[in-house]
């Protein structure tokens, strides 16, 4: 806020005459530069737009707002539709605002469709998957980043190579394994395959590599064992990447579909997306009130989490995309 005010006052001055101001504003750049004609010229042009809304800027905002409305339309339509009655949903042309909002569609999920059970399943699977990844990925990440050992390179290459292996390649033999172990339609079958992800290992390794070696060497000289160094020194420094990893893992677990669809063959073990998809492709395919309510119930927890923790979400994407 303060910074933009300063910039605004400077803008008032500059275009008038471009004289050298007495360096009274006390800001570090701009006015105090004695000659610097080049940079000034460039800044002048750029600043010009920032204090008086130029057409370009208005156009940018208009475009962004239109795009934002379009982006949010499906969400709005989902929420509005979820409280409409089936007869209103069938009406043509469609109504915008619900005429007589009803909670029936949501009630159907809680009363007839045991959504509490699916919710529990999704939550249990996500929580254990997240905890497993936090612990195991940082353990391997620490070993790969800070311990010299035989086979380190091979292990890292393995992690990197499998970073991109899609679930569709492994699910058939995985299902055979799980059947042989008698684990079809169990929590372990839903959790174990995702307990330690290569992406998580990569993320943790990258971060832990940035922790100064001297810190760890000092602890080693003081006689601390590796476990103490890991738990007492490295982990407390890993707050940000752990938060990122937790969010990324939670997201992929909560939204995971193919494997739960394959392995949860008993309705009691359905996760939310599986339950919703099977309901939506079955004989209730056109029962849109209930379907939209289901979508609201699946999407809302994640959206709330996203808004609350958006910094880490964005960080996570940037991390996986850039480095």
């Amino acid at each position: 806020m303060a910074a933009s005010q300063i910039r605004d006052t400077r803008d008032e001055h500059r275009p008038e005459d471009g004289r050298d101001e007495p360096s009274g504003l006390g800001s570090s750049d701009g006015p105090t530069v004695p000659d610097g004609r080049g940079p000034h010229a460039a800044r002048n042009i750029r600043r010009h737009g920032s204090h008086r809304p130029s057409t370009g800027r208005i156009l940018t905002y208009a475009l962004l707002i239109v795009a934002l409305v379009a982006t949010f339309m499906p969400f709005a339509w989902m929420v509005l539709g979820s409280v409409k009655t089936q007869s209103e949903l069938l009406r043509r042309p469609p109504t915008w605002w619900p005429e007589s909002p009803t909670p029936d569609n949501f009630a159907a999920w809680f009363v007839d469709l045991q959504i509490d059970r699916f919710f529990l399943n999704s939550t249990v699977v996500a929580v254990f998957t997240v905890l497993g990844n936090l612990l195991f990925c940082s353990m391997v990440g620490y070993a790969l980043a800070k311990i010299e050992f035989v086979g380190k390179r091979a292990l890292f290459v393995l992690v990197m190579v499998t970073l991109m292996v899609p679930g569709v390649v492994t699910f058939v033999p995985l299902f055979v394994v799980v059947s042989k172990l008698g684990m079809v339609s169990t929590y372990p079958a839903l959790i174990l395959p995702f307990l330690a992800s290569p992406l998580g290992v990569f993320l943790m390794r990258q971060f832990i590599m940035g922790i100064p070696d001297t810190l760890i060497e000092a602890a080693r000289i003081d006689g601390a064992g590796e476990i103490r160094i890991f738990a007492g020194i490295v982990m407390p420094l890993c707050g940000a990447p752990l938060a990122t990893l937790a969010i990324l893992t939670f997201l992929s677990s909560w939204n995971n579909f193919l494997w739960p669809l394959v392995v949860a063959q008993n309705e009691d073990m359905y996760t939310l997306p599986v339950a919703l998809s099977l309901y939506s492709t079955g004989q209730n395919a056109t029962n849109y009130g209930i379907l939209l309510a289901g979508s609201v119930l699946v999407i809302t927890p994640v959206l709330v989490l996203f808004v609350a923790l958006q910094r880490y979400f964005v960080q996570g994407i940037a991390m996986t995309g850039i480095k």
Partner: peptide, 14 residues
């Protein structure tokens, strides 16, 4: 960014 975090199944229904 919001659509990225949503379940594909749920948004496909919508």
């Amino acid at each position: 960014f919001a659509p990225v975090v949503t379940s594909i199944v749920a948004v496909a229904v919508v």
